[in-house]
Design a protein around this nucleic acid. Structure first.
Length: 438
RNA sequence: GGAGGCGUGGCAGAGCGGACGAAUGCGCCGCACUCGAAAUGCGGUAUUCCGAUAAUAUCGGAAUCGAAGGUUCAAAUCCUUCCGCCUCCGCCA
């Protein structure tokens, strides 16, 4: 969300942003609705003023007849007001809904473009591994080493279901655990948030209304303490970001408490309805997975937010470096970056079976776009209130990260060499192979 | 599982239909006293929105007493629902 006054002042910029971010929004219409809303509001406040005055008159009236007359007048004003307020409710709702569609502006260095072809590769880390034997995909390795069972996953959970087994379970938790420890050491506070969230949290983060069909909705939200059925919708979050930000919704923070750096770990749910037929094989695109997510809330300052944008990027890189995985950092173009994002980098990790880099991390600076939706402010030194800036990046997501780990670290004998950083979590084992299975 | 109570400004806490955006105390800010501080005295001290003059102020108006509805000419105050918190009894760890 942006400030409507900012939108009105910079209408051409907003129209251009809507265009390059491929958003379906008529900016002129939005402004028209706002103007109508304000006109109505003025009208309503005038009548309220009259009504308030009338109420005073009742108190002053001595004569009974006079009093009745004033009360009659009050009744009329009340009716008039009710009609206008109903109208206002309608137009305000329309206004609010349109405002939720307004994208954030993008940074000067963001490439303008439609799709991934217009993204800009910034740099690479480490050489792509060369193998002098025929490599196997993570699925083949997973089957041979009894680490992954897709068939059983589909049997129990359906399409995109999976079981991790044996060392893959340890590996999965090792990676998450390692990332949490790293973030803890870097001063992040750890949170295990709810994955069952109310609508406001997802609207606030910007997942709604844009990505609404990507999110699972609970068919049976349960009952209240009073035994009544819960009538508000509930959703399964696709990342811990909505919950971590929702934690601070409607709060005024203290400047001295900023930045707030959070590491959330949660199960993540994605319906993937928009990606039929895409990445149908293996552990790449799943309906549920686990993720350690980095979220930063900082001061209303582009420079400072750039600092944290770089910091959470480098933490993610560090994690990949610990895992000894080659990757590249790519800057997303306007069409790829999502409405709320001011600036966005993806980290793509090398996946030998795809013979390509593929997305494993996503680093975003949302400036105050989410904060406005969630009403998160802070008080500056001179008592002024400002919206905070928010940023987020993946810490690590698993099982997706198991793909490069298994594939990049496979050995000619069919075993997997475990990255050193993870060995403490796997009983100091160096290899996963059938022979070392205990 | 049963019974009851509470939710008001930064905090504590009164008000329980019109004089209430809200007593009082604490805190905070300013001024006075003081070499300085403490103590004391005096004054100020919520937020959001709209509008007008005007570049971060002033004035006018509206809304807000956990949330949403309702009754009334008029609601912090009455009614309904919800949320949160607390106490007691029972039950199970």
């Amino acid at each position: 969300m942006l400030d409507i006054k900012f939108i009105k002042k910079n209408i051409d910029l907003i129209k251009e942003t809507v265009r390059v971010k491929n958003i379906d929004l008529d900016v002129n219409h939005l402004v028209g609705v706002y103007d109508k809303k304000i006109e109505l509001l003025k009208n309503i406040e005038d009548i309220r003023k009259e009504k308030n005055k009338n109420t005073e008159l009742v108190k002053e009236a001595i004569d009974k007849k006079e009093c009745l007359k004033i009360i009659q007048e009050g009744k009329l004003l009340k009716e008039k007001l009710q009609k206008l307020e109903e109208e206002y409710k309608k137009i305000n709702k329309e206004f609010q809904e349109l405002m939720l569609l307004v994208p954030n502006v993008y940074s000067d260095d963001t490439p303008i473009g439609r799709d991934e072809k217009d993204n800009k590769e910034l740099y690479r880390w480490a050489e792509i591994p060369k193998f002098d034997f025929l490599i196997k995909s993570h699925l083949e390795l997973g089957r041979e080493l009894d680490l992954i069972d897709i068939e059983a996953g589909a049997k129990v959970s359906g399409f995109r279901g999976y079981f991790l087994k044996n060392e893959a379970v340890l590996l999965h938790f090792a990676i998450l655990w390692h990332s949490l420890n790293k973030l803890l050491q870097k001063g992040f506070k750890l949170l295990l948030p709810p994955t069952l969230a109310r609508e406001f949290a997802l609207t606030g983060s910007g997942h709604f209304p844009f990505g609404k069909n990507e999110i699972y909705q609970i068919a049976n939200p349960g009952r209240l303490a009073s035994e009544k059925k819960i009538s508000e919708p509930l959703f399964l979050t696709g990342t811990s970001e909505p919950s971590l930000l929702g934690y601070y919704a409607n709060q005024v923070l203290d400047e001295k408490d900023l930045p707030i750096k959070m590491a959330g770990i949660s199960q993540c749910y994605r319906s993937e309805v928009g990606s039929y037929g895409k990445d149908t094989k293996g552990l790449y695109r799943l309906h549920e997975f686990m993720k350690v997510e980095q979220v930063v809330i900082c001061k209303n300052d582009v420079k400072e937010s750039a600092k944290y944008f770089a910091e959470i990027l480098s933490i993610a890189e560090e994690i990949l470096q610990d895992l000894n995985l080659p990757y590249r950092v790519v800057q997303m173009c306007t069409g790829e970056m999502g409405p709320g994002k001011f600036k966005m980098y993806d980290i793509e990790t090398w996946m030998p079976s795809q013979n390509a880099y593929a997305e494993t991390h996503s680093d975003s600076n949302l400036t105050d776009w989410q904060a406005r939706r969630l009403n998160i402010k802070y008080k500056t030194g001179n008592g002024e209130k400002q919206y905070v800036y928010t940023l987020n990046n993946t810490g690590v997501a698993s099982p997706r990260i198991l793909i490069p780990i298994l594939e990049c670290h496979q050995q000619s004998d069919g075993s997997i060499k475990i990255p050193e950083a993870l060995r403490p979590y796997l009983n100091n084992k160096e290899f996963i192979s059938k022979l070392t299975r205990t």
